[in-house]
Amino acid sequence: MRALLSIDYTNDFVATDGKLTTGEAGQAIEQEIVAMTESYFQQGDFIVFAIDGHDPSDQYHPENRLFPPHNVIGTSGRDLYGSLADFYQANQAKKNVYWIDKRHYSAFSGTDLDIRLRERGITELCLTGVCTDICVLHTAVDAYNLGYQLIIPEKAVASFDATGHTWALNHFKNTLGAKIV
């Protein structure tokens, strides 16, 4: 069994005026992310939207010292970007579509993601979204440590740091044994 994780593909991370945007790099992967999401969905696979959610007044969250406020709960910056938002709107009530609010880089940290995957017998994860070298990377490391097989579609991940993006793709393949497609 397999699942597709859509990580942080939101207005704040992708739109030109996003608070912490990947800009053109993130916008360029929209069509591939949507096509892959629709394909996995049509095959009955589990689709997980793992979306960063922040409260800028949370004085204990380390990201508040590292990055400007982004993906603030209750703002349009946290909405899914582009036509992925349309997919979610049309399918959010389906049993194989799940939304996780995440507080940390990894979709596994402090969430019930591992439980949701294991109860469905999922062993293979396809990771899409942004940022390749931050949230996608940290999710991949946790997934690897939990024993999941990883697929990373090169045309469905992006970062605002081209060097970090390339490094992360190599790390996925050479250190985590991920299949890069």
Rank of each mutant, 00 (worst) to 15 (best):
F41G: 06
I73N: 12
R2G: 06
D17W: 04
C126A: 12
N145V: 11
L80N: 05
G18M: 01
Q59L: 11
I151R: 14
A107R: 03
G26K: 01
C131T: 15
S76T: 14
L176A: 07
Q42D: 15
L169R: 03
G164E: 00
G26T: 01
E124I: 09
V34C: 06
D114M: 09
R103H: 14
A162D: 15
I152G: 07
I151L: 12
R2L: 07
H70I: 02
S6E: 13
S159P: 03
G129D: 08
A50V: 00
V97T: 02
H138R: 13
N170F: 03
P153M: 07
V48C: 00
D161H: 04
A107N: 04
H138K: 14
T111R: 05
F46C: 01
Q43F: 08
K94C: 10
V14C: 01
Q31R: 14
L84Y: 02
H171Y: 15
W167T: 11
V72D: 06
D17K: 09
G82C: 03
G26M: 05
R103D: 14
Q31K: 15
L146F: 12
S83D: 13
G74C: 08
T128N: 10
V141S: 09
Y88K: 01
S76E: 15
K95D: 15
D17S: 11
H54Q: 11
K102N: 00
D142G: 04
K102I: 01
V181C: 12
A168N: 06
G26I: 01
F46S: 03
D52G: 01
T175L: 13
P62L: 12
D17H: 10
L127S: 08
